[in-house]
Amino acid sequence: MVQYAAGKLPARKLVSVWNLPELRRIETFPDEIRIGAGCTYTDLRQNAIIRREFQLLANAAGWTGGIANQNRGTLGGNIANASPAADSLPALLAYEAELVLVSVRGERRVPYVNFHTAYKKTKHAADELIRAVCLRRRFLDYFCYSRKVGARRAQAISKVCVAALGRLKGPIVQDLRVAVGSVAPVPLRLVETELVVKGKAIDQALLSVAGRTATAEISPIDDIRSTMRYRAKVTGNLVAEFLQKLAASAKNE
């Protein structure tokens, strides 16, 4: 709407998909949930399963804009708009979401992980609509960590935002997923960092290696919200903070 009102959208026919019941429901299956692309952030925040099993997504929904934005903004819109700074997208990366795309040619299911190909570019075809986002229900026993760093809590676009999941076996990191927004042309999963940490016990040395690896893996820029250096430093620090908390979570048990 903002771009349209500013005359920045090419004139073409537009179709309103707001509030279509088929896009606005959250379906629950034993092994996954399917979130309609037209669900609002308020819908996500209010859903009991998302709050319990997909906290990273519920948290991100609560960070998005203010209440009025959460009442109208949709998860599908956030994906299609493809901003690298979108708050909900790192959570989808961490949960290894799949997208259901639909067109007159039929439906297809694609992994979300490589959906964003470049700044504001995605893999969906011109005639395709994002129908739903599917999340596997297997993260209940993961430790989750999410943090947004911005000028203020609401109504501020992130300087850096992180969504991360981890599971320990004894002191050893058995599984790890770390995703970051606002530090590259697309939302990014920190694959190298995950590899460096997986299978090891968390100690001071590992924290610094992980932080350094994360810093090397991202490609932040200077813009009106922050600087490259700040983003790089903070990303490293957040990764270290996540790992520290993950380690502490085992001690609390």
């Binding site: 709407m1 903002v2 349209y4 009102a5 509030n19 203010g66 209440i67 009025a68 009442n71 109208r72």
Partner: peptide
């Protein structure tokens, strides 16, 4: 602001708080 950032255009649409600068009237 005209871009959903300030809330000065708030109205209740079907009982829901929204920013009216972001709503195409057809909706």
């Amino acid at each position: 602001c005209g871009e959903g950032e300030c809330g000065s255009c708030s109205v209740l649409l079907d009982g829901i708080l929204v920013n009216s600068c972001l709503i195409p009237v057809l909706q």
